[in-house]
């Protein structure tokens, strides 16, 4: 997956059995990549003591309030590991 600022992405909707850091309120919703935040160990692996954990790109992804809540004019930017995201056709 090659994501860059402006890429449209969908947060994975699944609810894994293990620890994850995809906030429930963005699951299944479409946002836009704002920037790459570097590469960091995946918390899902660290919480399960998978050694070494996968190290993945983390992206700031901006969601319009109306996409998440059906109303509102603000934006919410959420920081998401690459495997939490699916590329969305534009």
């Amino acid at each position: 997956m090659s994501l860059r600022p402006g890429s449209r992405v969908r947060a994975r909707a699944g609810d894994p059995d293990h620890h994850t850091r995809v906030p429930r309120y963005v699951r299944g919703h479409v946002g836009e990549v704002v920037e790459l935040e570097g590469e960091w160990p995946l918390p899902d692996d660290r919480a399960r003591r998978i050694d070494p954990p996968r190290v993945e790109a983390v992206y700031a992804v901006r969601f319009p309030a109306a996409e998440l809540w059906g109303e509102g004019t603000h934006t919410i930017t959420v920081d998401l590991w690459e495997s939490y995201l699916l590329e969305e056709p534009s």
Partner: peptide, 12 residues
């Protein structure tokens, strides 16, 4: 004035 909310859900 638009509001931008930043949810610190990872390492930033």
């Amino acid at each position: 004035t638009e509001i931008a909310v930043w949810d610190a859900s990872a390492e930033t």
